[in-house]
Design a protein around this nucleic acid. Structure first.
Length: 512
RNA sequence: GGCGCUAUCGUCUAGGGGUUAGGACGUGAGAUUCUCAAUCUUAAAACCCGGGUUCGAUUCCCGGUAGCGCUACCA
């Protein structure tokens, strides 16, 4: 029955970093739009002048782009740090701060049509009403005192220069809307009462419109067909519906997404650790892992078992009908699992490119690195990324590749214990003998021969054999397989990165 | 206080009037490996409570409880 093109919007306020909750809202909007051939609109709700900052707006757009969520209409592309950009799309402006005249014009219309009225009640009066309402166990709503103010009284107040707010006249009928996630929702009109549309102001100096007014106006004027947002807006929705009705606008479909909670069941916040998209990026999470995880937080595939999705797969599978209404706790473990999954499927060159920055002084400037270094590093990243949750953990794991402190390795408590054994001394002695007599690069084959020979000569095998050798080479008794490690060390030692060769490691550790 | 939303393993979820209540993360055990990670196998683990409807409710209805949200001239 509704053949209008689907149009959805994501409307963040630039008062801080984009966090995972909002990012999920953006994702669901984007998926819904893309899947149904609709438009995804980005609108900046920057009416809170105190807290809004242009740099957050830029950051916001960069975060969305990083996630792969592009918009059809909105404030252009992110500009130079915090500079405002030109609108893209025919329904702008897309910043609420630039839409004031629109709101003022519509307020006048409402007033003229008798659908809204000036309210001269003071904050103190309102506060008193509220207190009595609570005492009487009644809803705290506006009494409607100024609704029936005779014209004479209004003129008198205006002449006296009294400031006023503008309130909407809400009718008797219950306010209903359909929620695609929760079904039909209904509010009795007396629990909504006459909401303020415009803050205190004067005839010649109108006040600022309030949020509920501007969202409804913007959504309607921008032709939004589906409002997908957080469930903290459910209680606002009847007010917005009343506004739509006053203007005679078609009420959109709503879909209210559940809250994302921390492990303590409180709303997820900075207190729970990293929650902003940019912090996840900085930690070396892959965008596709975050997207996949966010998709799973409050939605499940139809087959009830698929957990990993690429973006095209998500696009195919996602429907609003399968979004769950109950709140979800953010599970860092599962995110980590997904990130490990996507690190395995990512190409080693991409991983290497992303991981480069975490290695700081260990590596040369990226654009000055030779191809040999690039290839070597890609191999290193591929090997070590198997044992990390996210990329920024890589340098700690691979540190021993770049330098080797024999004294420190010996001093470590768990190492000292192993090294103290007679068998270890024997093994390392044998190893040193072989290394001394060997001037060619060590291959995994040669290394294997050494180990076999040592095993024969000493009768030591298994842990007693490998543990001390691993410590001598890497400084710890855990790490990747020697087959992979040995070539990496040998190749690395030719690259002027300060990577010690196998032989030099042994020499440094055992002594010459 | 009022209004609203929500309720299946620890977590994310599937399911739905009769099921061995399924999957995934995490956890335990085992296999593998020199070790860690990975991988494979395997185990433990859930329908908030009380009424009603019904031959039968975890599923439908009502109530309670709990959590969360809104209750602003914030967004």
């Amino acid at each position: 029955m509704n053949t209008r093109k689907i149009r959805v919007r994501f409307a963040p306020s630039p008062t801080g970093l984009l966090h995972v909750g909002n990012a999920r809202t953006a994702l669901y909007n984007w998926l819904f739009a893309r899947r149904n051939g609709g438009d995804f609109i980005l609108r900046i709700e920057d009416t809170d002048v105190e807290r809004s900052e242009a740099r957050y707006e830029t950051q916001l757009m960069e975060d969305l782009q990083w996630l792969g969520l592009d918009w059809d209409e909105g404030p252009g592309e992110p500009g130079e740090k915090g500079s405002k950009t030109k609108d893209k799309g025919p329904n702008g402006p897309y910043r609420q701060s630039e839409r004031q005249q629109i709101y003022t014009k519509l307020t006048k219309k409402l007033l003229k049509d008798g659908l809204a009225y000036r309210c001269f009640c003071t904050v103190e009066e309102l506060e008193a009403d509220r207190r009595t309402a609570v005492a009487r166990h009644q809803p705290q709503v506006y009494s409607g005192r100024c609704r029936k103010l005779p014209l004479k009284a209004i003129v008198k107040n205006l002449d006296a220069g009294k400031p006023f707010t503008v309130r909407l006249k809400v009718g008797e009928q219950p306010l209903r809307f359909h929620d695609m996630v929760r079904g039909d929702v209904e509010f009795a009109s007396e629990t909504v009462s006459d909401p303020i549309l415009v803050r205190s102001g004067y005839e010649n100096l109108p006040g600022m419109p309030v949020y509920n007014f501007v969202v409804a106006v913007d959504d309607a004027l921008m032709g939004i067909t589906h409002v997908i947002r957080g469930d903290d807006h459910i209680s606002n929705t009847p007010k917005q519906v009343a506004i739509y009705q006053a203007f005679g606008w078609k009420v959109p479909q709503f879909a209210h997404l559940s809250t994302i909670l921390g492990a303590d069941r409180e709303r997820l916040s900075k207190r729970h650790g990293a929650t902003s998209i940019s912090s996840f990026r900085e930690m070396g999470y892959l965008p596709e892992a975050l997207i996949n995880y966010l998709a799973l937080l409050g939605w499940g595939a139809e087959d009830g078992r698929t957990e990993t999705f690429t973006m095209p797969e998500l696009l195919k599978a996602f429907t609003l009908e399968r979004v769950t209404p109950s709140p979800a706790i953010f599970d860092f473990d599962k995110l980590n699992w997904l990130n490990r999954h996507f690190m395995k499927t990512a190409s080693s060159s991409r991983l290497a490119r992303l991981a480069w920055e975490y290695f700081g002084f260990m590596l040369p400037e990226k654009d000055q690195a030779s191809d040999d270094v690039l290839v070597w590093f890609a191999n290193l990243v591929q090997l070590f990324s198997q044992s990390v949750d996210h990329l920024d953990q890589l340098p700690a794991k691979a540190l021993f590749m770049f330098g080797f402190n024999a004294t420190e390795a010996r001093a470590k408590e768990e190492n000292a214990e192993i090294l103290a054994a007679d068998s270890s001394r024997l093994v390392l002695g044998e190893l040193a003998n072989r290394a001394r007599a060997h001037y060619e690069p060590v291959t995994p084959e040669i290394f294997k021969e050494w180990m076999n020979a040592i095993k024969e000569a000493t009768g030591i095998k298994g842990k007693e054999l490998f543990h001390p050798v691993r410590i001598a080479l890497t400084g710890t008794h855990s790490g990747p397989e020697f087959d992979k490690l040995i070539p990496l060390m040998e190749q690395g030692s030719t690259l002027r990165l300060g990577v010690p060769s196998v032989r030099s490691r042994i020499e440094r550790f055992v002594g010459v």
